[in-house]
């Protein structure tokens, strides 16, 4: 009875059994040196990889440049980071867009930034009052305080502290 059903025609005559070197059960045993690659499985795996990588793809590009030893603090409810002028604190030194500055120089440079924006953009367009602050998680607040004060002096009211999303 088992010989008449589907299993008897499929599973019992498996391709592996037919191709066996020791006891071939196929009609004719031909020794073939060319092995057939299962390309369908390969394409399946590639497609899954492409879909996974596409989901992780970010079209924003790199907004922050970080040294290897810099660790940003972690937060669960952060917002999306946008491209704004970046003030970075690294080893106690302050950088505005990779240019090293003192606390006094920072205010002057921020005002200069605003002036340059007005010169290069049409009249009536206001520069966003947003600055991104990038600092190591172990940085003390006294180092950040000068940035908070400088931004307030230069009229930048919105600070965005860069964090790693949990």
């Amino acid at each position: 009875m088992i010989k008449q059903n589907v299993i008897a025609n499929t599973a019992l005559n498996s391709p592996i059994a037919n191709a066996s070197f020791l006891n071939p059960q196929g009609k004719k045993w031909k020794k073939s040196l060319a092995a057939d690659l299962l390309l369908t499985a390969l394409i399946d795996a590639f497609s899954i990889l492409v879909i996974f990588l596409l989901m992780n793809f970010s079209s924003n590009g790199e907004i922050l440049f970080m040294k290897k030893d810099m660790e940003l603090p972690k937060a669960a409810l952060g917002d999306v980071l946008e491209r704004n002028p970046v003030i970075k604190v690294e080893d106690g030194k302050v950088f505005l867009e990779e240019k090293m500055l003192t606390a006094e120089g920072l205010i002057a440079e921020l005002l200069e930034l605003r002036k340059n924006f007005k010169a290069t953009h049409p009249a009536g367009e206001e520069m966003p009052n947003t600055i991104t602050v990038q600092a190591d998680r172990r940085t003390k607040y006294e180092a950040l305080n000068q940035i908070v004060l400088a931004c307030a002096h230069a009229g930048f009211s919105d600070l965005k502290f860069a964090v790693i999303m949990k």
Binding site: L54, D79, L159, V163, I164
Partner: peptide
Amino acid sequence: CICFLLLTAVWLNVGSMNVKQAV
């Protein structure tokens, strides 16, 4: 596609904590 996406993948998800200062 895989090579391109692997090279351009951003593994670190950077966000921001927004603070409004009174000026």
